[in-house]
Lab assay of single mutants.
Amino acid sequence: MDTYKLILNGKTLKGETTTEAVDAATAEKVFKHYANEHGVHGHWTYDPETKTFTSTE
């Protein structure tokens, strides 16, 4: 398992979190669920070199 990072740049919520996942697709599902639960619906990007997802509203 690898550690993946999420950076949230929402209108009402900003911050970072991490998750352990078997691959990027699994981490993306976890992070999108997390963002949706916190009302963040933004544009998603992923940097495979740093294993970092960013959601920007």
Rank of each mutant, 00 (worst) to 15 (best):
M1L: 14
M1I: 10
M1A: 08
M1H: 10
D2P: 06
T3V: 13
T3H: 07
T3F: 06
T3P: 03
T3A: 05
T3D: 03
Y4I: 02
Y4D: 02
K5C: 08
K5S: 05
K5R: 13
K5A: 04
K5V: 10
K5M: 06
L6T: 02
L6W: 04
L6S: 01
L6C: 09
L6R: 00
I7A: 03
I7T: 04
I7C: 06
L8D: 01
L8P: 00
L8G: 01
L8C: 08
N9S: 10
N9K: 10
N9C: 14
N9D: 12
N9G: 04
N9P: 03
G10W: 14
G10N: 05
G10T: 09
K11V: 15
T12W: 14
T12K: 09
T12L: 12
L13R: 05
L13T: 11
L13A: 10
L13K: 09
L13M: 14
K14T: 11
K14V: 11
G15E: 13
G15S: 14
G15T: 15
E16A: 08
E16W: 13
T17M: 15
T17W: 15
T17C: 15
T17S: 09
T18C: 11
T18N: 06
T19D: 02
T19E: 03
T19L: 13
T19S: 04
T19A: 08
E20P: 06
E20C: 13
E20W: 12
E20T: 13
E20Q: 14
A21S: 06
A21H: 02
A21R: 01
V22N: 09
V22W: 12
V22F: 12
V22K: 13
D23P: 01
D23T: 05
D23A: 03
A24Q: 09
A24S: 08
A24D: 04
A24P: 10
A25C: 13
A25H: 10
A25F: 10
A25P: 08
A25K: 10
T26A: 14
T26G: 08
T26R: 05
T26H: 13
T26V: 07
A27S: 01
A27V: 01
A27R: 00
E28D: 04
E28L: 15
K29P: 02
K29Y: 07
K29T: 10
K29E: 11
K29A: 13
K29N: 09
V30H: 12
V30F: 15
V30L: 11
V30Q: 09
V30T: 11
F31K: 00
F31W: 00
F31N: 00
F31A: 01
K32G: 03
K32Q: 11
K32M: 11
K32F: 08
K32E: 06
H33T: 12
H33C: 10
H33Q: 15
H33K: 15
H33G: 08
Y34H: 04
Y34Q: 03
Y34V: 04
Y34I: 07
Y34D: 01
A35C: 03
A35N: 02
A35I: 07
A35E: 07
N36H: 15
N36Y: 14
N36Q: 14
E37R: 09
E37A: 13
E37S: 12
E37N: 09
H38W: 10
H38Q: 13
H38V: 14
H38R: 13
H38P: 01
G39V: 03
G39C: 06
G39N: 10
V40T: 04
V40F: 15
H41G: 08
H41T: 10
H41R: 09
G42E: 04
G42R: 03
G42D: 04
G42V: 04
H43I: 15
H43P: 06
H43L: 13
W44D: 00
W44L: 08
W44A: 01
W44T: 03
W44F: 11
W44R: 00
T45Q: 09
T45S: 12
T45A: 09
T45Y: 08
Y46P: 00
Y46K: 00
Y46G: 00
Y46F: 08
Y46S: 00
D47P: 00
D47L: 04
D47A: 05
D47M: 04
P48T: 07
P48N: 06
P48F: 07
E49P: 08
T50M: 06
T50R: 05
T50W: 05
K51Q: 05
K51T: 03
K51M: 06
K51W: 04
K51E: 02
K51N: 06
T52C: 05
T52E: 04
F53L: 00
F53E: 00
F53Y: 06
F53I: 01
T54C: 08
T54F: 10
T54N: 05
T54Y: 12
T54M: 10
T54P: 00
S55I: 15
S55A: 15
T56H: 07
T56A: 06
T56W: 09
T56R: 05
T56D: 13
E57F: 05
E57D: 08
E57W: 06
